[in-house]
Amino acid sequence: MQFIKNIYKFRYLLIELVSRDIKKKYRRSILGVFWSLLNPIFTMLITAMIFSHLFRFDIENYPLYLLCGQIIFTFYNESTRFAMLAIIENGDLLKKVYVLKYLFPTSRVLSSCVNLLFTLPALMLIIVVTDANFSIATLSFIIPLALMLIFCLGVGLILATLAVYFRDMIHLYSVFLSLLSYATPIFYPESIVPEEYALVLKLNPICYFLRAFRQSVCEGIFPDFDLLLTCTAISSVTIFFGWQLFKKYQNHFVLYI
């Protein structure tokens, strides 16, 4: 509760931090923020080209399926990696001024979220071009996204804490991320996963968010209630644990950065 109250109280600082991240990301590039739009489309086109000619999966509307997977995974990847470094990179500041420390990982997850919002027009475009099922229920995609945001925030807080004490985390995590990208059905259907590896998908929390997101976007239906419940549970547990861990150690951060 305290967390939410403070977030509200410091909303202007958060907005400023988020806009700083975005400004810096695109400063001096001509197309600027359009890259958020173009990047996923190009990546999707390349991957779609490879996979529809080399390996064929039996998936209806493959480009849309692929784009959903990419958007969700890129969000997870970018936000957590970015949040992990939040404390270390702002070390100079934290050593000199008193600031609420969790504002930094939070702002970084939020700026990744803003980036994700910029990619939504790309999603719309593909929906229109491929003539996918579009209904009012499609808009429910916002629910899995919001839950995903909370999940990423939790993971970000945990990683930011760990990275302060063990710098190895930064390298370890990028290896873990590449493993995770194959353990998530981004470009392949869940059905091709052999029986003995089914557990991997079950243990991968991103799968649940992605499945719900795809139900909204690809099938144009409201996600299964059970599925949303699972996502809510995952998010709540993660944010609770992340917040407790961060709170416990935050006062000692300055001694290690």
Partner: peptide, 13 residues
């Protein structure tokens, strides 16, 4: 606090 003023500056901005 006037401890090393400008600590929060972002060079790029």
């Amino acid at each position: 606090p006037l401890i090393e003023v400008g600590a929060g500056f972002d060079e790029e901005l």
